[in-house]
Amino acid sequence: MLELDGVTSGYGAVTILQGVSLSVGEGEVVALLGPNGAGKTTTLRTISALLRPRAGRIRFNGQEITRAEPDAVVRLGLAHCPEERKVWPRMTVAENLELGAYTVSDRTAIRDRMEEVFTSFPVLRERRTEYAGRLSGGQQQMLAVGRALMSAPKLLLLDEPSLGLSPLLMQQVAGIIRAVHARGVSVLLVEQNISLALHLASRAYVLSSGRVVADSPTRALRADKTMLQAYLGG
């Protein structure tokens, strides 16, 4: 479903990804692990076309998206829930969700999906008319995930969804990811919380200094923690 082949990318004069190749299959949950600065967020930003690769190719659903614009990538069915949530602070919860479905023109579909998001996160329904900037960190995280789901993606990129969440909310977000997966959506997950990532994903890539240094079923990584520790320095 998603394939990166030798992707090199970065900011200005700085090259961060040095030829990354990875793939996410139909209905798969894949984790992207690695220490800070390894290029995890850069990988996601390059996939969703916020950054243009300097070399290599990206294919999604059989289409080449290497040089696509971000809105074209969204229309193909890829949603990216960014690092640090990035909700629109001076817009209401409902407006945030509606804008998540900016590429969708079917009003009924938008209403149905918003209903689904409210069912998953009841607190968002309660606070639907409030400014997103007034929500707590955890609620903003739920809003960010909900917003990404509003475009009914086939592949969801999640960047640190557990960041700043209490253990209870973390379990809730994990539950949502499982539910999303159960609906047939593929997930590429960047997560600092290694044990959470290993439980959610069936396969993991380990990134170090902009290179893929391991590609392994998470079952193997869970069984043999030493390999992971060697890469992550933890």
């Binding site: 969703s48 960014p82 990035k86 909700v87 629109w88 602070p89 509606e98 900016y102 590429t103």
Partner: peptide, 24 residues
Amino acid sequence: TRAGRAMRAVFQQPEAAALAGIPI
């Protein structure tokens, strides 16, 4: 309007707007 909402979104949080598929 939808156009106005897109405007506010782009200037409040450009990256999220791009990720929502708003043509910046």
